[in-house]
Amino acid sequence: MNMDRRKFLKAAGLTTLVGLGGKGVFELLKPGTVEAEMAHEGHEEGGQEKGSGPKVRWAMLIDIMALNQEKIEKIVHTCHHLHNVPNWGDPKNEIKWIWEDEYEHVFPDSYNEYNHILAGLPFLLMCNHCDNPPCVRVCPVQATFKRPDGIVAQDYHRCIGCRFCMAACPYGSRSFNWLDPRVSLRKEIAQGRKLNKRFPTRMRGVVEKCNFCVERLAEGKDPGCVEAAPDVMFYGNLADPNSNVRKILKERVSLRRKLELGTKPSVFYLI
């Protein structure tokens, strides 16, 4: 039998709907079970303050005061080049791993129109690699999962494109490939874009997001954004009280997005 991935997923989806027996559907209807399972797995209090917590928890610090348009462009370009993220030039199909937005949208809960220090400043957004990631809870196939070092990884090989994770993420950090990304990449290459031949593309029907450059960390390199702007982006081990990032966090005022949701983001904005 020769069935391609899309056909297989379509058939599987149909079967699930008909039988209403799919694990994803089932768990969504009964949230209690998910909670119980997570507590059982020990995800509930994986906080950085606890003694029995993880040894490594990667965090990213973004110095908003040092950001400017030129640096933003360099950071976004470096990241999207390294991971062959297409640029469709159309918000409907947009794929983004790291992108710019303004204070008003980044901190809608604490927005204050008289705050003339933050209003108007550029912010850089990316996956928050939450300590308590809602996307991981809802993924019916464990395509997205939290690594022991705190990075929320996305396994494209398992992604079935259900987009539950996109609905669950409060930060809009995930993008869906409505179209074959290679169509855009081929067009961009014809216009002079360079492909990063060390990294694969994605395909139509999968969700993608920032991966904290796991492929670079594995080689002992810094994440692409840090390499592009080392005076703006700092990464380090949040679980180690003597790490560079903990030292900076002691000295500077920092913000994290939508803390009231309990997701415990690993991305900090220095002001």
């Binding site: 020769n2 391609d4 991935r5 494209y156 694969p200 593309t201 395909m203």
Partner: peptide, 9 residues
């Protein structure tokens, strides 16, 4: 026809 080549190349 391994589907790997949809993403890898």
């Amino acid at each position: 026809d391994p589907y790997c080549w949809d993403c890898h190349y």
